[in-house]
Design a protein around this nucleic acid. Structure first.
Lengths: 100, 100
DNA sequence: CTAACATATGAACAGTTATTCATATGTTCA
DNA sequence: TGAACATATGAATAACTGTTCATATGTTAG
C-alpha cells in the first residue's frame, strides 16, 4: 500500500515544526531568497540585507544545522548557497498561499 | 516576461515569515494533520491530541486568521476543516525535506 | 611570526509566544 | 426562561528566540 499520505507520527511532526520555525523568521527567509540567486559570502549577505555580520552569521548557523544551506570555504571567506531545491519549493508554496 | 521567480520584496517576505510561523508550532501542525483526514469539532480535536479545549481553541483562532482552516457551525459545535490544498502541500514539502 | 581581515561564538537583553485558569458568549432543549 | 453544554476569550506566566556587543577562531599576506 502507498504509505506517503498516512498520518505522520508525533515525533516527525515535532521535527517538522522545527523545520518550519526556521522558515518563520524574515531574516532567515531573506537570506535564503538572496542565496537563491547566487552563492555569497557572509559579508555579501550582510550588506545585501543591510544587517550586522554577527546577526547573519548566527542565522546562517541555524540554516546550516537544518541543512538548508551549504558552505564552502575560499580563503578567508565562507561562501553559502542553498542546499537543495526543497528550499525554493517550500518558499514558493508559501507564496502561493499568500498571493491567493 | 514571467515574473513569478523574481525576488519577492521585503514586505511579502515578512508576510511569508508570519505564515511559516504558523506552521512552526507542533500543536498547530498536529491540528492541521488531524483535520486533513476529516472535519472535526473543537472537542474532538482536543481529545484526539489529548490537549485542553482552551489550547486548541486559541490555536484554531490563529489558523483561522491565516486562512488555513474553515469553520462551520452545527448546533453547539463548531466544525473545523482545512481551508485549501496549499496546507497539505506545504506540509508534504516539509516532510520531503525531513525524510531526505 | 604578526597584522589585518572574515567569520563564528557566547552572554545578555528585549520582545514574542504557547499554555493554563477563569470566565464570557452563544446554542439547545426541557 | 433557565440549566447544560460547546466554544471563545482575556490575563498571567513561563519558556523561547533574534539581535547586539564583545571577543574568539581561523586564514592570508608581508
Amino acid at each position: 500500500m502507498d504509505d506517503k499520505k498516512s498520518c505522520p507520527d508525533i515525533e516527525v511532526l515535532f521535527e517538522l515544526a522545527d523545520l518550519f520555525k526556521v522558515f518563520g523568521d524574515s531574516t532567515r527567509l531573506r537570506v535564503m531568497v538572496t542565496l537563491s540567486d547566487s552563492e555569497l559570502s557572509v559579508m555579501e549577505i550582510a550588506e545585501a540585507l543591510n544587517m550586522e555580520q554577527s546577526t547573519i552569521s548566527h542565522q546562517l548557523r541555524v540554516l546550516r544545522q537544518n541543512k538548508l544551506v551549504r558552505v564552502r570555504r575560499d580563503g578567508k571567506q565562507m561562501y553559502y548557497s542553498l542546499d537543495d531545491d526543497h528550499v525554493k519549493k517550500i518558499i514558493e508554496m508559501g507564496l502561493d498561499h499568500i498571493l491567493e
